[in-house]
Design a protein around this nucleic acid. Structure first.
Lengths: 234, 234
DNA sequence: CGGTAATTTGACTGGAGTCAACTATTGTGG
DNA sequence: CCACAATAGTTGACTCCAGTCAAATTACCG
């Protein structure tokens, strides 16, 4: 089974995280843990200090509100770090698998020790966090300032771009295991309205999202209605 | 004039960023640059590689859309890093001063070199970015899943908490130089609706925001309607 | 003081939410 | 392998929160 250190050296989205030159850290020699679809990997408010690096599969990172609603913060993919906090304390968000998920788990203390002793690691982590930052910021723009149509279009384009970095998208086609309900919690809309919006997008021959399969039909018009500029994902 | 390295050692929100033990880096011996109110410090899509560390004053970090709208991503305060990107390339967002602003400016290359040679710096940067992450994520939750009332209430409480960390808030009272128009661009609402919402909050004796002065009136009820839990700002 | 920017208010509109029913798909145990 | 339950998707009718448009009124600044 592939260890974290091997994964890092060979992962296509190495840019996302850490690439080479520090495969000597002991803590990297861990094997991935496998989770079943729809299992909870960690819970908001829990107090453990595990940090996760996803190897493969789909997951959602979300924050639940008191009234039972939730906002999905991100859909981390292979190579992404999840749960790195600036200080000890209860978790900010929950992480759940959508598909079967392979995850490297390391303790915050171990990672920080390694960062302290090797500047290259710190740099890689910082860069990875900066990328997450850009993704979050664009997500915020999306929810705060775009209407249902362009918001949905934008998200589907972002997914395509992110998936293509890890080889999971091809010519505007990719598999997406998210339900419309999950989509709604990502986009800050209701399930019903997501449904209607997807219908509109299909009727306008922009994208189709059917049975877990996404297909970009008219990229030019789609990018236009989304106001999408992939630069932030570089 | 206080250099960056001196600032870091004495800044009250040291936790936000870098505290001690690395004041020996040359690049830290820079003086802050002073900007007038309402000046643009850097522009989205520009290609310079300066990174900013705020010393004092209010600023907004925002992203403009093609249709002329904008979403304010964050209101960075003293001690916050702005503009750290994971890779070279055009800027993601613009930074503008609201009040007079003092800013330390360093080049991305210099900062990265320093990170590479000193793990402690990398750690501090990573922690600072992780904090920004949490703030962005909560901002997203706010805009995506809370209505005008609790959204506005939540933001005012977040400001209070962040300001109190740098000694700018006292017993639920603080100065806030943001206009209602800027507030609207932060909260993903219109100016008109921000105005009405602030009136509601005042009428309900929760908070008042008048003439740049914010005052928490009934904290318990305010926290409740906001669904505010300051843990993410620790 | 005069002009510009910011705030406030009212009347009206509309996009997205709510409620509710129905259909399609998936998955599971007998 | 089917029956049937549970989950996911779809659609219509109606509501409402927030947006739009427009016009004061007030605060700020040179």
């Amino acid at each position: 089974m592939q260890t974290l250190s091997q994964f890092m050296r060979t992962h296509p989205a190495g840019a996302t995280l850490l690439k080479n030159g520090w495969g000597t850290n002991d803590f990297l020699d861990v094997s991935p843990k496998i989770y079943k679809p729809h299992s909870v990997i960690c819970r908001q408010d829990d107090n453990d200090d595990t940090i996760f690096i996803l190897k493969s599969g789909w997951a959602i990172l979300y924050r639940g509100l008191l009234d039972g609603e939730r906002q999905i913060i991100d859909t981390p993919l292979g190579g992404d770090i999840v749960g790195f906090r600036f200080v000890d304390g209860p978790r900010f968000a929950s992480l759940a698998s959508i598909t079967e998920l392979a995850v490297y788990e390391i303790s915050r203390k171990a990672l920080i020790d390694a960062v302290l002793s090797d500047g290259r690691l710190g740099n890689k982590i910082a860069c990875s966090l900066a990328r997450l930052n850009a993704i979050l910021a664009e997500h915020l723009v999306n929810v705060g300032r775009r209407n249902a149509m362009s918001r949905t279009a934008h998200f589907l384009l972002e997914l395509e771009e992110r998936l293509s970095k890890v080889g999971l998208s091809d010519h505007g086609r990719y598999e997406c295991p998210l339900t419309q309900h999950e989509l709604a919690d990502i986009l800050g809309m209701t399930t019903v309205h997501v449904n209607r919006t997807l219908r509109e997008l299909r009727k306008a021959d922009l994208v189709s999202f059917k049975a877990g399969h996404v297909e970009v039909i008219n990229r030019k018009k789609l990018v236009e209605t989304a106001g999408f500029d992939k630069e932030y994902l570089r």
